[in-house]
Design a protein around this nucleic acid. Sequence first.
DNA 1: CGAATATATCTACAAATCTTGATATGTCAA
DNA 2: TTGACATATCAAGATTTGTAGATATATTCG
Lengths: 117, 117
Amino acid sequence: MPAAASRPRTLPTASAARAARMAEIFHALSDPTRLLIFEALRGGEQCVCNLTGILEAQQSRLSFHLKTLKDAGLVNDRREGRWIHYSLDPDALEEVRSALDDLTRAAKSSAAACCRR
Amino acid sequence: MPAAASRPRTLPTASAARAARMAEIFHALSDPTRLLIFEALRGGEQCVCNLTGILEAQQSRLSFHLKTLKDAGLVNDRREGRWIHYSLDPDALEEVRSALDDLTRAAKSSAAACCRR
DNA sequence: CGAATATATCTACAAATCTTGATATGTCAA
DNA sequence: TTGACATATCAAGATTTGTAGATATATTCG
C-alpha cells in the first residue's frame, strides 16, 4: 500500500471488508418476505409454524428465507420439542443500526472541488 | 388456518407494500461496490470521474451501480458541462434511517405463547 | 464541422437467487 | 415401534443480478 494523498485513493482494504459485511446484512434485508419475517419477530420469538400462518409462504420457502436471515446472523433459532423458535439477534440489531448510522452520518461537507473546467 | 389468536394474522397489504419499498432500498445497499460509492458520496457531491478513481471499477460497471442507486432513489445526478455529479438524496437518507428504525424498534414484548405442548 | 472526452446504454454471458416439489431428519405420542 | 408432525435440505428450473466489452449520446474544444 503506497503513499496516501489527502483525499480518497483506492479502496482501503478495511473499508472493503466492512462493506462486504454490510452488504451481507443489507442483502438479508433486501427481500420482502424476509422483511415481513423480520417484522413478525419484532414482537418476540416465534415458532416457524406461526410464521407459516402469518406469511403466505410455502414451508420450504419460509425455511429458505429463515436460513438466509440466520446465515447473515440476524436471527437465532432454538429448538423446543418438535418446534423451532426464531428470534431477532439483539447484537445483530445493533450492528445493523450502527452500520446504517456509519453510512448516513457525516454527510455534507465540502463539495470536493472536482472536474473544474 | 383456524381462528385468529390475539397476535398476527395474514400479511396486511399496507405492510406488504412498505416491505417492497424497504426491500428496494436495502437491495440498493446490498452490494459492496454500491456501498463504497455511497460512502464516497457522504463527503458530498462527486463527479463520476472521481468515483472511477476511488473505486477500481470499469466505467460501465460504475455506471450500472450508479443507475441502481438512482433507480432506488438514493442518489441524484446533476449534469455540469460534460461531467455528471452524483450526490446522496437527503430525503432518501431519512427514508432509509426511518425504515431501519421501524424495523428494529419495539422489539422485545411478549414471547407470544405459541406451540405449547 | 470533426475530434476528443465523459458518461450512459446495449449485449452477451456467468453467477447468484428464489421458487417449488420431493425427500430427509428429528421428535413426540400411541 | 410406528406413525404423525414440524422443519430442514436437496434438486431443478426460472429469474435476477453483476460483469465486460462494444457502441451510442452529449458536450466541449479546436
